[in-house]
Design a protein around this nucleic acid. Structure first.
Lengths: 227, 227
DNA sequence: AAGTTGTACGAACGATCGTACAATTAGTTT
DNA sequence: AAACTAATTGTACGATCGTTCGTACAACTT
């Protein structure tokens, strides 16, 4: 009906814009959002520098658009899959495992996009930093909410802090030291901490076989059981 | 003594070099080692651009020297104080509290220097990355060793991973979100995790007793004792 | 005293940065 | 067909980047 207004020119423009932003996010995950330059982007994509520039009007707008594009990829890859299972421990575990997979399989070549740009912009003012901080808070409060839906957890804010710490540490260690074992460390840490928190929900589903007395077992058992 | 070879020119040179590197580390903790430019450094220090350049011969060498200078500051501020107490739980706690204080009181204006440059260089090759990774491994294995000296801890490598994760998370949250509470979260996490690990050494003081919500105890005491 | 060494400076270089604007191409409307 | 519109291009600009080079001057050696 009214969706027929497919202007071929606009259509093509949006496609190049998507290509630009996908490449921009890849570069930024490795070199940072400042290391990302319009000229280099144009050269790599084999288009004109002014063509790239025209899509955004300023470098800051390019950076902001890149952050938004990366957030969409993150949401599709990490958040949405977790929404396919009912709230509770299973969803929380799927969310955390999804994050580790997102980092481990290098959705962005430099590891987690937000880890990279967060550390780059955390100490300087501006709209880019504000956008990054906003997504950080969103992610934080979504994890927090998912923890809340498990029930029976004493201090959800504290648990949120610790779980996210494990995820980011795994990403950092893996990228800097080429150490894939970091992800296994994070999985052990997450499992152990969730057991300690006394995640009430039954669902022995993905849990360890020895989940009954997991608290004192130091959680080393099911290292190979998962995955 | 035998230190009589005080050439006034060399002496003066070393002093300006120290000033350059101190400022360079400050800037890099905020803007990164790439954001650090020789021209800007010269302007801020009110010296000539070529004067700054002459001290290092290349930008890469300036970056390497900056990393080394920051490592020396880190060692003095975090590692050395812990060496004043005997090995064991007390030393480990002093080390961790020392790190949190080092980040919290903004020894570098952008928070932990190494957190910033690690995320910046973790995904690109080169000598700078290698140097940063080297210091990272050093820090990691020193924490690991200090944990080992406590005794009675099941998996020291796993504990090292988790404790450092708490520290870096506190730094990241604090800097990006202007949230000073992050440090308290990290202290709670550390205390809780050490209690769970069953740190054998005496000093039950900081153990499970205060694990509820209290901020008091040895943790904060040490943090204020320093500095 | 004259001669040597080391730090710091000023000017200039080629390259690249972000940005501006007019010209061109391709698709849509009348 | 002409008129219009949107994406893309080419050219050019001022600023800043890292780097090079010749020079000035203070400090040390002989």
């Amino acid at each position: 009906m009214d969706v027929v207004k497919v202007d071929g020119r606009v259509e093509r423009g949006e496609q190049t814009r998507r290509q630009i932003l996908r490449r921009a996010a890849e570069i930024a995950s490795v070199e940072g959002l400042e290391g990302l330059s319009i000229g280099r982007l144009a050269t790599e994509l084999e288009v004109s520098k002014s063509g790239v520039f025209a899509h955004f009007g300023s470098k800051e707008e390019l950076q902001l658009s890149t952050v938004r594009a990366a957030a969409a990829i993150f949401a599709r890859q990490v958040v949405e899959p977790a929404l396919t299972v009912p709230p509770g421990l299973a969803r929380l575990e799927l969310l955390l495992d999804g994050w580790l997979a997102y980092s481990e399989n290098r959705t962005f070549p430099g590891g987690c996009f937000f880890y990279a740009v967060q550390a780059e912009f955390d100490a300087r003012p501006g709209r880019v930093r504000d956008a990054i901080a906003g997504y950080g808070r969103e992610w934080n409060s979504y994890v927090r909410q998912t923890i809340g839906e498990v029930g029976g957890i004493a201090d959800p804010d504290q648990l949120t802090f610790e779980l996210i710490a494990f995820l980011e540490m795994a990403n950092a260690q893996s990228v800097l030291h080429d150490d894939p074992d970091a992800y296994e460390r994070a999985r052990v840490a997450v499992r152990n901490r969730l057991a300690q928190a006394g995640a009430a929900s039954g669902a022995a589903a993905s849990g360890t076989a020895a989940s009954g007395t997991a608290a004192s077992g130091t959680g080393t058992a099911a290292s190979t059981a998962r995955r």
